[in-house]
Design a protein around this nucleic acid. Structure first.
Lengths: 339, 339
DNA sequence: TTGTAAGCGTTATCAG
DNA sequence: CTGATAACGCTTACAA
């Protein structure tokens, strides 16, 4: 007795078209290699049966999956959504499918997910930031799975990266702040552990202070996970200190929004009593009151170029090139000269 | 000559541990079935070699992938992010991995992605809303891939669903609005084509009008894709009409935020000159000025329960149960009695 | 408790 | 241009 109405296979198609499985396979993967007449016969058998190739079998035989994996720190806030969407659109155009997972900013989880994605046959990986154990890079090398780092541009690192110079960008913003006359600076940063972007942004502020005659040691710093509530709480602490800052540079827009809202709760005027800046220029930055002066990151461009670069690595077995993107300060209302 | 430093296989592990591949496989999948001594030997071989099972091979042999696919309309706005995150956490707890793709609200894209996910061996699918061609449901049946619908609760539909009654929820909100004395109502809705949620929300408003002596025909309606800018533009049009509405009920928070901002640009006071309501209660709703009165949807609970329900369907071959969740009106400042 | 061996559905190599 | 047939790496009866 024949199989009980389970998914049709190559073999079923071959039988129905009166050809071999090899021919069917060719029709599907490299149609020119088979004469038009048989091709038509095969194709009509294909859709008569509603045949869909079995992905696992194909991967195993071809050792290619046309799948790209991406591991992002979180799906919950908008920071990665836009860039990832662009990434996905671009790879889709080129015949690849995207697999996304999120690591919740946890290195162990990220490592596990990298292995999962590789085991699933991902042809390449998109990673966020450079900071991770060398063991992981060794693993990727051994498995010969190319990876591209985004959201950070550091050409001398082991993996090619596409993004911007987080340190330089934040330095520029901090210089703007200092140029306005601010002397007591604070920063609300994301957790720097395993996060080169967060760390470099703080360094950028210090750089700006140094080159403007302020001691970097006076920078008040709070590290906290990227959540609006945490930004609010950190801001509260900062303003409760003996010498509260006149400007608070936040490591990203989410924290900055928390700070701005907390200021309102505390009856502080922004930027009258205290200036606040963000980083990323996500939607929230425009919506909040007062709107955030922040650093604009070309997320969509980054996503698209990361896709192009990674596919290049996959298809031509190249080692990958790093690309630097420009950021720009977007001036809105949350920053002004100290009162 | 041996293979050139490619990924180790079951066979390599077996050789090194001096057992058969079957035993290694058992150690990995059902450790109790093998005696402790050999198990240890195998395990140490496993990590000496840095062995990771080949996923495609496993899927092919076991006809199970421990993968669940989800297709959401978009990753770009926050509506689905929170629920999906909860969904992912829950399935991860139970040993499954999530594959996400987004359809950009396009039915053809969604269909293609459903097929892709199934071909990839997804054990089950999470779908948003009920509206789609029957052909797709037939396909899923044939392939015996269970699917769960979320963000909409309609028990009489073909697929089990978990969510809330969109019509009823919006009706409740509209009654609140009408109860305040509003008589000229408008709605800015998402595109209703292929989107039962959007359509039912409009129906809910009409229901409320009918049962309160207002003619549903007087409801001014604009349909537009879910983007802040579109909400703003729709609001502009609405207010430019001869008899502008005194309250605008938006199909979701994203559109409502656009409306609120446009009001500000136009010098209209919210809620003094016009009331605006949202739907979903995403973060933006709290952040915008004035904060939105909106409908709270228990996204995380929905995600978790969808996961539990779907896994139940997968593992016990059950047909799936629909679950209704409650929504609640969250009162903030964007709604008040007409001036 | 463990080993043997037959698939799983493709692709790819070689002949024809 | 097309057909056999051997991989691919794993799971799972069935046997020992």
């Amino acid at each position: 007795m024949s199989k009980l109405r389970s998914a049709p296979t190559l073999d079923d198609v071959a039988k129905r078209a009166g050809v071999s499985t090899a021919t069917v396979s060719r029709c599907l993967n490299d149609p020119q290699r088979v004469i038009a007449a048989t091709r038509e016969r095969v194709m009509s058998a294909v859709d008569a049966l509603g045949y869909t190739p079995n992905f696992a079998a194909r991967v195993m035989a071809a050792k290619r999956s046309f799948t790209i994996g991406a591991i992002i720190p979180t799906m919950e806030n908008a920071i990665f959504a836009r860039g990832l969407q662009a990434f996905q659109e671009e790879i889709h155009l080129r015949g690849y499918t995207l697999l996304v997972s999120s690591s919740a900013y946890k290195p162990e989880v990220e490592e596990e997910q990298i292995r999962t994605l590789v085991a699933r046959g991902a042809d390449g990986l998109l990673l966020i930031g450079h900071d991770r154990d060398d063991r992981i890079y060794d693993y990727l090398d051994r498995q010969k799975v190319p990876a591209m780092v985004a959201w950070s541009f550091i050409p001398e690192k082991r993996m090619p990266s596409i993004g911007f110079d987080n340190r330089q960008a934040m330095k520029a913003l901090a210089e703007e702040v200092i140029g306005l006359g601010h002397k007591r600076l604070a920063t609300i940063s994301g957790i720097t552990q395993g996060n080169d972007r967060a760390r470099l942004r703080i360094e950028g502020i210090r750089d700006a202070m140094r080159s403007n005659g302020l001691s970097p040691d006076t920078l008040m710093t709070i590290e906290t996970p990227y959540e609006i509530e945490n930004g609010a709480e950190a801001f509260r602490q900062l303003m409760a200190s003996d010498h509260p800052p006149s400007a608070v540079l936040c490591g990203n827009d989410v924290l900055a929004v928390g700070a701005v809202r907390q200021a309102e709760l505390m009856g502080l005027r922004v930027p009258g009593d205290v200036s606040i800046t963000g980083f990323d220029d996500i939607e929230l930055a425009r919506i909040v009151h007062p709107a955030l002066t922040t650093l604009h990151v070309p997320h969509r461009e980054m996503g698209r170029k990361a896709a192009a670069g990674l596919i290049e690595m996959i298809e031509s077995n190249a080692s990958g090139q790093s690309i630097q993107l420009e950021t720009s300060i977007v001036t809105r209302t949350s920053l002004a000269a100290p009162g």
